[in-house]
Design a protein around this nucleic acid. Structure first.
Lengths: 211, 211
DNA sequence: GCGTTAATGGAACTGGAGACCCGTTTGAAC
DNA sequence: GTTCAAACGGGTCTCCAGTTCCATTAACGC
């Protein structure tokens, strides 16, 4: 849905945009599912258009026509993933919410299947500009779901008024993603714990207050 | 040097290990330089063994034989980069040193050439295990150069005794790399500033004290 | 210097990724 | 339910990444 409008804007006649009914939608679903499976199993470098077409039960011509490249597939997958939002926690305290957020991120990246997908997606984003934009969009929507928690915490006086919610949430995620994508370290539970605590400590000091 | 020993351990007769004199070394230098150029110009996904061989003025058979794959090239490049260490700053205060460190990271990632290389390297590490290990090793040596700054700061009482230096340094780098690799945001100077300040605030609170 | 052989490099071969053509299916409008 | 074009899909072709083979070059030990 989101994708169709977006593509309509850029190119007048991209396949899959004018007749999104029945078959076309089913094809997209099958292809994106197959892409997710392939990424989870063997990573981005092994992503192969022919194999995707085969395992999705779709003609390979169709895959090439609608997605052109592996990064195109990943980009569309990200648009799809951004639509399926999961709600933020509400533990009553900002400290608790941030800990829940950090633990959610950790659980996602630690999960064998999801971890592989995110690794692949990060690789794809590093290779392709369009893909990078899609990934950025994905995180924008994800973080947006958690901003109310910070706002409530600020209202309760747990962090200074004027604290930038997104900045604080980024500070929570950053250490986890840094280890995951850059240094490839183990993500133990205490890492998430510390990420949340450190971010909150900095926030209390007013580091994330918008000037 | 480091590489030769490493390879000698695993395989008894890997090309380039038994006669590392003159030509072999020159070939490696030329190939790694060409790889760096290629990554800076067009990124990891466009890394092409044939083109590397051509622009290095080396037979493509040699490149395939000694490095096998694009990730092999990047892996060796990382070993090479880890050897060229640059010394840490010493501003007199931990706050100053951390700010210098954050700014150094920011400058590196922002530089058009180096930024592209790091992006490529992160992508390669996400695709290949051996490459990931090489990247982890690179950062281990880099962070090790800055640990004395933290130790000195702790001795001066700027952070609690027992503060884990590496943990603190990771906290400084994390927000920068997170934006760089995951959300692909602009890295303005104030981001580095805030990364250093936030990490120090958390450290002062004792978040990074080893239990 | 001289011989040995590790390492390089040119050339020819192969397989599979990706492009193209064109007939078939099917969603949308009436 | 009929029509029309959008989207799909099978088959084929092309090109290039990656391999193999063998001749040539030049390190290393004497």
């Amino acid at each position: 849905m989101e994708l169709e409008t977006r593509l309509n804007e850029s190119r007048p006649a991209t396949p899959g945009t004018l007749r999104p009914g029945g078959r076309t939608a089913k094809v997209r679903r099958a292809v994106l599912d197959a892409t997710l499976d392939a990424l989870a199993e063997s990573g981005f470098h092994a992503l192969n258009m022919d194999r995707i077409a085969a395992s999705a039960g779709v003609g390979k011509t169709t895959v090439y026509r609608r997605w052109t490249s592996p990064t195109g597939l990943v980009g569309d997958l990200l648009h799809d993933m951004a639509e399926q939002s999961l709600p933020a926690a509400d533990t009553g305290t900002l400290a608790g919410d941030l800990r829940a957020n950090a633990e959610l991120v950790r659980a996602t990246l630690t999960d064998p299947r999801m971890g592989a997908v995110f690794r692949a997606v990060i690789a794809a984003a590093a290779c392709d500009e369009e893909c990078a934009r899609a990934l950025a969009g994905f995180y924008r929507t994800r973080l947006a779901e958690w901003t109310p928690a910070v706002a409530k915490g600020a209202a309760r006086g747990e962090v200074p008024a004027g604290t930038d919610p997104v900045e604080l949430l980024r500070a929570v995620s950053a250490p986890l993603y840094y280890r995951f994508a850059v240094t490839h370290e183990e993500l133990a539970a205490d890492v998430a714990e510390r990420a949340a605590t450190a971010a909150l400590a900095a926030a209390r000091d007013g580091v994330f207050v918008r000037e």
